[in-house]
Amino acid sequence: MKYKIVAIDLDGTLLTDSKEVTNENIEVLNALSHRGVDIVIATGRRYYSAKQFVKKTGLENITILANNGTIVRNMSNDELLVHKYFDEYDFYSLIEEGKRNRLHAVTHVNKYLEGYDMVGEYASLDQRYCNYLHEAGNRYKKVKNLLEYEKPNTLAVVYPGELEELSRFKAEVEQKFDGKFNLYLMQKLVGVSPILEIINSRGSKWIALRDYANQRGISTEHIIAVGDDNNDLEMIEKSGLGIGMKNASEEVKAAADIITKYDNNDSGLGKTLREIFNI
C-alpha cells in the first residue's frame, strides 16, 4: 500500500527529550517530502511553538494541526485553515468549575497575529501554573480573572496539577458536561507536571487529520500516524497504519500496529519510517 500522508506528533515523537530534532529524523522526513509524501504535524502545542520546532527540519510547506487539532495553519504563509473555538457559555462554565475545585486554568487562544497565544491569571502563585505559563515566553497575556476576559476565541483550556486531583476533576467534568469536551490527561511531557487539556468536542488530532485527508481526496487507509501520548490515541487507532513510539504510554502501545524499536532520543521515528518506505 502506498501511504500518502504521515502525521507526526512533536513531543516524545519527532523531538528528543531536550527538544531537538535528530539528523536522522530530518534526513528521512526530507526524503519522504521529496517523494511527494505529505508530512503533517499533529501536536498539542500552540501553533507558534510548533512552528519553531518544525523549522529545524528544513521543511517549509507543512500543515500544522495545533492545539490538538482545534486550529490548523499552513506553515509557509501562516494561513488559517480551520479553527474550532469553545462555545463562550461552555468556556465560562468550565472556568467556574475549575475555580470551585481550586484549579487555575491557562487558556490557549487564537491571537497569533496579535502576538500572544496564551492567557492566564496573574493572581495565581501555583508554581506548576507559573512553570506552564512560562513556556509561552513573552507570548502570553495576563488578566485578573478569566471570567472577565471578553471574546476569548479559546482553543484549549489547560490545568496543570497533581495527577490525582486532575484525574478527579476530569471525571467530574465528563459527568457534568457530558459530551461537550474532549479531555486529555497528559503525563509524559518532559519537564512539566501532569496537565489536563480540554478542547471543543468537535476538535481532536484525528478529526483534523481525517478532514485534511478528505479535502485532498486521500483515504484514511493511506495515512500513517505516529505518536506517544494519549492525545495521539485516536489517530493511531483509526489511521491506515498506527505507530506508537517505544517511549509511548501503555494505552498507545496497545492501540498501535507497530511499536518503534528505538525511542524518541534515538531517532525511533526516522528509523521506522526508513524501513517502511525503503529509504
Rank of each mutant, 00 (worst) to 15 (best):
Y3R: 02
V6P: 02
V6L: 04
V6F: 01
A7M: 07
L10A: 07
T13K: 13
T16D: 03
N23V: 08
N25I: 02
I26S: 07
S33T: 14
I39T: 05
I41T: 03
R45D: 09
R45P: 03
R46Y: 10
Y48R: 13
K51I: 07
Q52Y: 11
F53H: 13
F53L: 10
T57S: 00
L59Q: 02
E60K: 09
I64C: 08
N67R: 06
N68L: 08
G69S: 11
N77S: 05
D78F: 10
V82S: 08
Y85L: 10
L94M: 04
I95M: 06
E96F: 09
R102W: 11
N110V: 08
N110M: 10
Y112M: 08
G120H: 03
Y122W: 14
A123F: 15
R128G: 12
N131W: 12
N131Y: 12
L133Q: 04
R139K: 15
K141D: 08
N145W: 07
L146H: 06
L146R: 00
L146S: 07
L147R: 13
L147H: 09
Y149S: 09
E150S: 14
L155T: 03
V157P: 05
V158C: 13
Y159M: 09
E162Q: 13
L166M: 05
Q175L: 12
N182L: 03
L183Q: 06
L183R: 01
L185T: 07
G191H: 10
V192L: 14
S204R: 00
S204P: 11
A208L: 07
I218L: 04
H222M: 10
I223N: 00
D228N: 15
L233I: 09
M235G: 00
I236Y: 07
I236S: 02
K238S: 05
L241V: 09
I243W: 05
K246F: 10
K246H: 13
S249R: 06
E251W: 03
E251R: 12
K253S: 01
A254W: 05
A256V: 10
A256H: 04
D257W: 10
T260C: 09
Y262C: 08
Y262S: 12
N264C: 14
N265S: 07
G268E: 03
T272W: 08
R274K: 15
I279E: 06
